[in-house]
C-alpha cells in the first residue's frame, strides 16, 4: 500500500494525425479502484490503449510503480504486472476455455503459482470449470466476461485495466463483476482502472472517479463525492 501504482503525466495520443488524448494527467494509488467515465468519444478507450502500449503516445509519460513504460513492448507489459482486458473482452473464440486461461499464464516463470492461480480462477468462476473444453465463441456474454477476467487474473496482475466491463451484460452480472473487483481490491490489493459508460455502477464500486471529456481529464475526485454531490454530478455528468 501507499504511493501511486499508476501515474500518467501530460499524456497525448491519437490515431494518425488526429489527436484524441491531450494533456491527460491522472494518478491511481496502489490498491484502489479508479473509474474513468465520460461520454462516447471522450477518449476513454484510447486512454486504455495508450496505457497498455497498443497505441504509442505522442507526448507525456506513463509510470508504473515509478518506472517509465516508454519503449516497453506491449508483450512485456504483462510481465511488469499490467493486465488489459480489452473492449469486447478479447476472448479468443477459436480456442477453448482452458486454452484461453492457459494463455494468460504462459509467460509466467513460476509454474507452480501459475497452476495455483488457474485453480483459483476455476473456483472463482465455477461455470468456466464446467465448460473447460468449450470453445470461446460458444460462451454466453457473462461467461465471456468471466473468462476474460479470469485470463487476466491468472497472471496475478498488480494493475488491471478494464474496458467497459458492463457492456452488453445483464444488470445482475454487472453487479457481480463489480462486487468481485471490490473483493479483489480488499483481499489482494489489486489496483483497477476501469473505463465505463455505466456511470452509476462504476461509481458504486470505485474509490476515484475520473471524468473525461473531449480527450481531457476534466475532473478527478473521490467517487463518493461524485455520487453524493448533486451540483458536481449535474455539472460534469449531466444527471
Amino acid at each position: 500500500m501507499g504511493g501511486d501504482l499508476l501515474t500518467v503525466e501530460a499524456l497525448a495520443a491519437g490515431y494518425g494525425p488526429v489527436p484524441v488524448l491531450r494533456d491527460v494527467d491522472l494518478r491511481v494509488p496502489t490498491g484502489t479502484i479508479a473509474a474513468v467515465i465520460g461520454a462516447n468519444g471522450a477518449g476513454k478507450t484510447t486512454l486504455l490503449r495508450a496505457l497498455s502500449g497498443m497505441l504509442r503516445p505522442t507526448a507525456g509519460r506513463i509510470l508504473l510503480d515509478g518506472r517509465d513504460l516508454r519503449g516497453t513492448p506491449v508483450e512485456q507489459l504483462v510481465r511488469r504486472g499490467m493486465a488489459h482486458v480489452p473492449e469486447g473482452r478479447g476472448v479468443i473464440g477459436e480456442l477453448t476455455v482452458a486454452e484461453n486461461l492457459r494463455l494468460g499464464a504462459l509467460w509466467r516463470r513460476d509454474r507452480g503459482d501459475a497452476a495455483r492461480a488457474l485453480d483459483e480462477v476455476y473456483q472463482l468462476f465455477e461455470p468456466l470449470a464446467a465448460r473447460r473444453r468449450h470453445l470461446g465463441h460458444q460462451l454466453s456474454g457473462g461467461e465471456r466476461q468471466m473468462l476474460a477476467l479470469g485470463r487476466a487474473l491468472v497472471g496475478r496482475p498488480r494493475l488491471l485495466l478494464l474496458d467497459e466491463p458492463s457492456l452488453g451484460l445483464a444488470p445482475r452480472v454487472v453487479a457481480q463483476t463489480m462486487a468481485l473487483l471490490r473483493r479483489l481490491r480488499d483481499d489482494t490489493g489489486l489496483t483497477v482502472l476501469l473505463v465505463e459508460q455505466n456511470v452509476r455502477s462504476a461509481l458504486a464500486v470505485a474509490d476515484q472517479g475520473i471524468v473525461m471529456s473531449l480527450g481531457r481529464v476534466v475532473l478527478a475526485a473521490p467517487a463518493a463525492r461524485l455520487r453524493d454531490d448533486a451540483d458536481l454530478r449535474h455539472a460534469y455528468l449531466g444527471f
Binding site: M54, E75, V78, A83, H84, P86, G90, L95, L103, L106
Partner: peptide, 17 residues
C-alpha cells in the same frame, strides 16, 4: 498454443505476453 493465439487474435495475444 502461442502460435494459434497469435494467428487468431494478434492484438489480444500481445496483451497476454
Amino acid at each position: 498454443l502461442r502460435m494459434r493465439a497469435a494467428a487468431f487474435a494478434p492484438e489480444v495475444s500481445r496483451l497476454l505476453g
